[in-house]
């Protein structure tokens, strides 16, 4: 029997699952082969470690450390929530949205309410003299849209 075959039979050999004949043959090989002996003992010892172990002992201050961790987590969570729900963030958002809402309602009313369309009746009224209308609006000269500073400098230049 060669090492390769022994290696294959080793798991069943450990469990005494082989026929008596094979069991004996594997044993004979292991006894005479250093290489297979090493594998056999290492395998056996590793499998022996597969059993309930005392493992890790009770830990002092385990609860205290856990509590610390929970408190830290709560703090960081709270600080995040407080940023989101703080007046600093929420108030401006409410103000801004109410302004937008107000403007939007204003536009809605403006486009639907007939009383606002009366301004366009100036054109519709045939009795209105176009010259009078021009005179009425003629003060809307170039200066009206100039800044006061510009007006002053220009009048200075005239002098």
């Amino acid at each position: 029997m060669d090492c390769k075959r022994v290696k294959k039979l080793l798991p069943d050999f450990l469990e005494l699952n082989l026929t008596e004949d094979l069991q004996q043959k594997v044993k004979t090989h292991i006894d005479s082969c250093e290489y297979c002996t090493k594998i056999y003992w290492n395998l056996k010892q590793s499998l022996d470690l597969l059993k309930p172990t005392a493992g890790i002992a009770e830990q002092a201050f385990y609860y205290e450390r856990l509590k610390q961790k929970m408190e830290n987590r709560l703090e960081s969570k709270n600080s995040l929530l407080s940023v989101i729900f703080s007046k600093k963030l929420v108030q401006p958002v409410i103000y801004l949205s109410s302004i937008i809402l107000a403007v939007y309602i204003g536009i809605l009313i403006g486009s639907n309410n007939p009383s606002f369309t009366q301004y366009s009746e100036i054109e519709a009224d045939e009795n209105i003299n176009p010259i009078e209308t021009f005179a009425e609006y003629s003060y809307l000269n170039d200066y009206e849209i100039e800044t006061i500073e510009n007006l002053i400098t220009e009048s200075d230049d005239d002098n």
């Binding site: 493992g55 890790i56 002992a57 009770e58 830990q59 385990y62 609860y63 856990l66």
Partner: peptide
């Protein structure tokens, strides 16, 4: 606290048997 002190060793060992690392456990 009573609950944690009663069961922490058990929980710690399950985690360690899977993770095989004390700090992680």
């Amino acid at each position: 606290q009573f609950f944690v002190e009663k069961y922490h060793q058990m929980v710690l060992n399950i985690c360690n048997n899977i993770l095989n690392n004390f700090d992680d456990a």
